[in-house]
Design a protein around this nucleic acid. Sequence first.
DNA 1: ATGATGCAGGCATACGATTTCACCCACCAA
DNA 2: TTGGTGGGTGAAATCGTATGCCTGCATCAT
Lengths: 370, 370
Amino acid sequence: MSGDQSAKRPVPTMRDIAAAAAVSQSTVSRVLSGAPTTVPIAPETRQRVLRTARELGYRPNPLARGLRGASTNLIGAVVRDFSDPFFAGVIEALVVESMAHGYNVVLGHVPGRAGEEAGDRAGEKAGEKAAAVAGEEAVALTAVLETRHIDAVVLLGDMQEHPQLLADLRNSIVPVVALWPGTSPREFPTVDADDRAGIRAGLSHLVSLGHKRIAFVNAELPNDYRVREDAYLDFMREHFGAVPPGYVERCASTLAGGDAALRRLMDRPDPPTAVAASTDVVAIGVLHAAHSVGVTVPGDLSVVGFDDILIAAHTVPALTTVRMPISEIVGYAVTQAVRLAREPVDAQRVPTLEIFKPALTVRDSTAPRR
Amino acid sequence: MSGDQSAKRPVPTMRDIAAAAAVSQSTVSRVLSGAPTTVPIAPETRQRVLRTARELGYRPNPLARGLRGASTNLIGAVVRDFSDPFFAGVIEALVVESMAHGYNVVLGHVPGRAGEEAGDRAGEKAGEKAAAVAGEEAVALTAVLETRHIDAVVLLGDMQEHPQLLADLRNSIVPVVALWPGTSPREFPTVDADDRAGIRAGLSHLVSLGHKRIAFVNAELPNDYRVREDAYLDFMREHFGAVPPGYVERCASTLAGGDAALRRLMDRPDPPTAVAASTDVVAIGVLHAAHSVGVTVPGDLSVVGFDDILIAAHTVPALTTVRMPISEIVGYAVTQAVRLAREPVDAQRVPTLEIFKPALTVRDSTAPRR
DNA sequence: ATGATGCAGGCATACGATTTCACCCACCAA
DNA sequence: TTGGTGGGTGAAATCGTATGCCTGCATCAT
């Protein structure tokens, strides 16, 4: 068919279509963009152009589109911590939801303090470029964004560690939606979960099983985000008048962190009979540690997690946890982001706040106190 | 500082720099791109331009760059299954590695049979556009790519289910690197692991512990990818002369799949004393099922996984598995992709093949046969 | 003194699509 | 016949960057 031509120009341009359909390139643009043109197009011309485009296998060049200020249909996702299974699930939901809206997702990962390093290694490719461009560190931080390359940005998790990124975002024109913002200032439209209600649901469940010696393992973010911990403290004070001293353990937000935290708790003279964890990841670490030190779950110890990540239903034993409505939250956020991407700039920065309610999911890691 | 100006033009262009530094736009481009120009630039001019750029907070517009055929520094990742924790880890590695090379990652997910649906819902945004563009289904499938928007494509997992995607890739000029291609035809440079060696390592370990009744749980991909299963069959025949009948269970590549498979195995009159799973995900399902039906691991049953995903070290009990060298594989692939992105088109499609060796990681889910 | 060299930098154009403006033509009313 | 009028189309500017080509201006050798 288009043999040798496709070898040279695999993707035909509008000019090619125009030549083949014997119209001008402007007409091709008008027909293919499908936008309600100000100018009328004869039905037959329209058909001819469409047919030609199909035959030649036309694909619009999004870069050229974007250059004119049109949308690139790209959503940038900046995620605090990649290795966290919770965010892995979030990203999946985000990608699926975005594609359903006709958008793709560009992943950005905010390097800890690695601005320098990233710049250096990028230099491999860019030659002197990296060194030459002004304000290189700042550029490295906002790498994903490269403003205007992207129609909207979704912030996943606490971004407090990256003020530079937030500042860049603030000064740019891209709409931003923040999810699970933690301690980040509420400067963008935000979607979050009612952490306090979630923690209370888990704790109420433990109390209803007769537990009193309930410890809390808090996955500590770099900036003290203590909503879940505070919810625990308040709950304990309400129900028992006081928080058992030493019953709050803080640890890294990892499996190993939860593991270590439980070991510390069980080493106490008065070990708890139940543990609430601030995330499933640490809860799974707790499960593992309990098994390692010979504590039976749920016989000797009840464990409640938070998030209901994918593996939670298949741990040993299956984890009782609080389901984070990820798809609802992400779905809402994407809808919001897409809407903002189309709206005039001035309407975008209203820091709205939408809260979703988590719900308890009882499985096998909790049992009545012995 | 730049008060009202930033309100109108948040991101200055090269033209702005040029005006401010009293040089031509071309000079600005030459200085900022840092490429070894054919044209000499006076050091002082260079400095002046750089300073001006810094002061005005210049950021290159990647779209405009890309339009000229330059690189967009974007790598497209197409992943077979998002919900798989294995691929979550892979994506993390990919993002980190890509950013180290100065690239960002665009996530694509190949919809099962959902071409229609995706197109419809995308229509929300594009109005008649979606319907108007030729070959809409094809466009939906290659959504991420939008050829030339991306410098290279990394294929994650088996793409056999998506011949349309492969065809598009074949006809486009983007370099492609395939990772863990499974049954996909070897038409691109490929990076894979030595599955056979990995399975044999796991099985040898079980045999050295005295196990003979070793079953295999195969996470079945849509296209029968049976390298791991075949490795098991061969191994068993070599060591025991035959494969115990009914000892190969196939299941969905999910936690629930592994769960169900183990239940079937343990229901047999001659249950195995050890199980090798083709992936950690199903192995974790196996662990969970064993616990549910009262089979102790590793007392009654030894379990070996494959992949060494993040949670594997923290399951109950910690999973003995075969470590998939993800970072090595991804690192090699990204280096390759970046190199190909810079090379002339004709050198790109040589279907090279690089194989990495997995290694056994012994933890607590295996023990001598009782 | 003068053409040859080399250094610095500007001009113009290309990239592919969008969009504004202008144009042509047919048809209708006056 | 002529001045609309409006439908249908094309030419050209534009977006921001990269680059081939050309032009000044010194300096240098002859």
